[in-house]
Amino acid sequence: MREFYGVTLDSPLMLGTAQYPSPAVMEAAFRASGAAVVTVSLRRETGGGQAFWQIIKGLGVHVLPNTAGCYSAREAITTARMAREVFETNWIKLEVIGHADTLQPDPFGTLEAAETLSSEGFEVFPYMTEDQVLAQRLVDAGCRVLMPWGAPIGSGLGLNNRYGLRTLRAAFPDIPMVVDAGLGLPSHAGDAMEMGFDAVLLNTAVAQADDPALMAQAFGMAARAGQMAHRAGPMAPRDMAVPSTPVIGKAWL
């Protein structure tokens, strides 16, 4: 099992903390899902989010602070440094947004920030497109985890580019990878895990469900099922029907 900067996770599910009806509902979702990692944004809560951060710490799972809402490397670096102080962790989910409408990551800003943060001892989880060249540059910059998107943040579209994700997975067999963003259904999570990804990260699909705890549980189970299926070695699809039981010798006249 691939480790995330030396940490083995109990569950392949990572959950965000935004948009829940209340912290109580969020806590219930974490409990029901068994998620191993919580990601939390610092950007907007600057300076006054202590009470909420205490609730996050109280979840008892690994905290992955993020730089959501940052539009430049500089902003992201500043936010990351603050996050390290608040949560006492070197982990940082690096998010540098390049486009306000699609929330696409800015590959150039992401790379620039990843270089700086890695040199400062951060353990960077970069949110990225499934671009293989970018992936190589981020690995060169020191990233030992990659987080390709499934689809635009909050869109719930699932895996938009299965081919790209599959080739990316194959190209970096030793790098743990998390499909981050765009997942709308547990089947999307299962799909990503069956393809050999190491975890999935999502927020909206759980937080905005009618019953967040139940949906979180469904995602937790689906991600785990996908992980098991990948380890079990899935059969290859065939064009030809193959009977499970031989027909030779049966009376078929």
Partner: peptide, 12 residues
Amino acid sequence: MLGATQIESAAP
């Protein structure tokens, strides 16, 4: 009256 943001912050 237009409202309202809801931010996890106690910053005044």
